[in-house]
Design a protein around this nucleic acid. Structure first.
Lengths: 142, 142
DNA sequence: TGAAAACCTACTAAAACTATAGGGTAAATA
DNA sequence: TATTTACCCTATAGTTTTAGTAGGTTTTCA
């Protein structure tokens, strides 16, 4: 199941992408519009900022804004920042690889074989989907 | 992350598929071979039995065995029995659909749009992968 | 200088997951 | 009839994750 953190993070990004211009929008405004606890959203936006696609400005009139065009923001980065590894087991993770302590041989492991396929297909989706795809109605996307 | 229940379940199925014949194998033997707590495996095999692909026999010489050929056992059924819904949010689930209570409109929801794609790609993998694919070394599967 | 807003740390309540344990019932075999 | 093994139920303890909450610090603008 997708965590609320990821849900909220995606909704917040979509909200920012839907703005006409790129002026800063306060956390409070986003939280209010998307029905998210402000404090919770605060921590979410903070982790999204580390992707480099989200900028912030402090003080009066400050807030968060997209640094790049939505079409240049791939879901791979966003999902890794929000949900963590895309792989369902660490032994097939590209960025967070770790050997399973109980598995003697990865090559012959059924779990490994299956999860490798699942990871590849998920990666394919995330790499080919940008924030722009999530807000514009495309009749026959793909 | 994949639960241990699913990991163990897949390993147990693969172990059964690797047998020469289809005679019953006791839980204790599977648990021992795959390093799984016997009681835990017991409950896992029970839920797998409900898929109709796994048979059991009580009494002396009893145990679990595959009812169908591994090539006829699709991962869709297995994963649903072990992990539950394939979709990451209930609003895109085929078998467990439920409307998100906080989302006013699915059509315009960014989370919905993205997770629909992810579900489709995962389904594609599970539908086209059978238990046989997880045990036999196929050079260029797909 | 004061207000507004992001930033940062720490804490917490609840839920889920993992694994084990115990107990008993039902069915099959010898 | 005795043994073996699956079936089924409950409980529990420990750990981790989730979804926040609280409170203070820093930066920026007017």
């Amino acid at each position: 199941m997708l965590s609320k953190k990821t849900k909220y993070g995606l909704k917040a990004l979509a909200f920012l992408a839907n703005q006409n211009d790129r002026h800063p929008i306060a956390i409070a405004e986003i939280a209010d519009h998307e029905n998210i606890s402000q404090k919770f959203l605060e921590s979410i936006l903070l982790s999204l900022r580390r992707t480099g696609y989200l900028g912030s400005k402090k003080g009066k009139g400050g807030g968060y804004y997209l640094i790049k065009d939505p079409s240049e923001i791939p879901m791979t980065t966003v999902m890794r920042a929000l949900e963590g590894p895309i792989a369902m087991v660490s032994c097939v993770s590209l960025n967070f690889y770790e050997k399973c302590e109980d598995c003697p041989d990865e090559q012959s492991c059924a779990v490994h074989k299956l999860m490798l396929k699942v990871r590849d297909s998920a990666l394919d989706v995330y790499r080919n989907t940008t924030l722009a795809d999530l807000i514009i109605q495309v009749p026959y996307s793909q």
